[in-house]
Design a binder for these strands. Structure first.
Lengths: 198, 198
DNA sequence: GTCTATAGAGAGATAGAC
DNA sequence: GTCTATCTCTCTATAGAC
């Protein structure tokens, strides 16, 4: 998994490398010099494309990470025969990805979100927007499956909490066991509400 | 909530202040100068008590945070009429604490754990020990309540994932809604297994 | 737009007086 | 054990040549 994707434009190389380093090492733990060295890109290019510096770059990393993960969710759900199966598939795929990257890559925004929630208000707001984007997608899918909206919102919050908590536990314990358990719990939680209209 | 607890010994003031700053700002985001300034304590005292510097200090913060949270869990569970009620109470209390600290204080180790999982192996191992400590406590309580051990382990992982995920969502969304949903989900998950022997 | 050099601040760590 | 001063390194950010 070489970090330098040489055929991409400079701006994208910086953006993708930033995303990788931020999600693995966090915001404060990643230096701009490290990003441009690994991209690779001249240091000055970073300030050419993001005049607002580190915080502006991180805000875009959070937004694009949110869009990417939403697209992944949509693709997996649409490929599944039904929503319940799709949610189970999503947890299974998450566990496979975490293990395949040697427990480095999990949620695209969680590491940064936890670190800056109390210290960088613009980045906290960007992270909140992303979480609400994901919650909205799952909530709408549940509503489409005849779950009442208030209950769909509550279930979405629990499913996302299970996923995020499992990501942290998998990376820390270096095991996929938490993701397997969380996926089973997510399916168990959804089953009564989704079977009601089957 | 003054950070300086003047009557405590220097070592404890540094330790408690470090715990507060690490859980709110993360490991890389917290400077040793900031810790000794806020404790308050002379800068040299930090290296007197922790010759290994920042990493040795953080390792002790993780361990003591783990012990503190375990004691809190034990107190809440023991005060409840039964395990199911106790778990619900724990989530309720967690939500209250997060809100009462203006969404700053949540899990004592999660912020650091997520940040250093891929970069500081000794701290990752210390965080893993703490998570296993908590998982062991809940698993034993479930086994005592007649839940088969393998199932108790799986449920413990799901409950802890729900808690950690809800902590992150509450801090990022600045709302207790995720903790309320996660608490309800935790109770719903446990109910069939705990009612089986009732 | 690309790239290098460097400014200015702050980091972690150490030495040594008291 | 307490406390100050300082070393060296790295950080974010900027200036300016090309």
């Amino acid at each position: 998994m070489p970090a330098a994707e040489t055929q991409l434009p400079t701006r994208d190389r910086i953006l993708f490398t930033s995303a990788e380093l931020f999600r693995r090492q966090g915001y404060a733990g990643t230096g701009l010099k490290q990003i441009t060295a690994q991209a690779p890109a001249p240091f000055g290019s970073l300030y050419h494309f993001w005049p607002g510096g580190k915080e502006e770059l991180a805000a875009e990393v959070i937004r694009t990470g949110g869009d990417f993960f939403l697209a992944l969710y949509r693709a997996i759900i649409d490929a599944a025969p039904d929503l319940l199966t799709g949610v189970g598939d999503f947890f299974t795929g998450a566990g496979e990805t975490v293990a395949a990257t040697d427990y480095q890559d999990a949620c695209p925004i969680a590491t940064v979100a936890g670190e800056i929630a109390s210290t960088h208000e613009p980045l906290r707001a960007a992270s909140a927007d992303v979480f609400e984007l994901w919650l909205g997608a799952l909530t709408e899918d549940l509503v489409t499956a005849e779950v009442p909206r208030a209950r769909a919102r509550e279930l979405s919050l629990s499913i996302l909490a299970l996923l995020e908590g499992a990501f942290l536990l998998c990376r820390t314990l270096r095991s996929t066991e938490p993701m397997t358990a969380a996926g089973a719990a997510a399916v168990a939680l959804l089953t009564p509400d989704l079977e009601a209209d089957a």
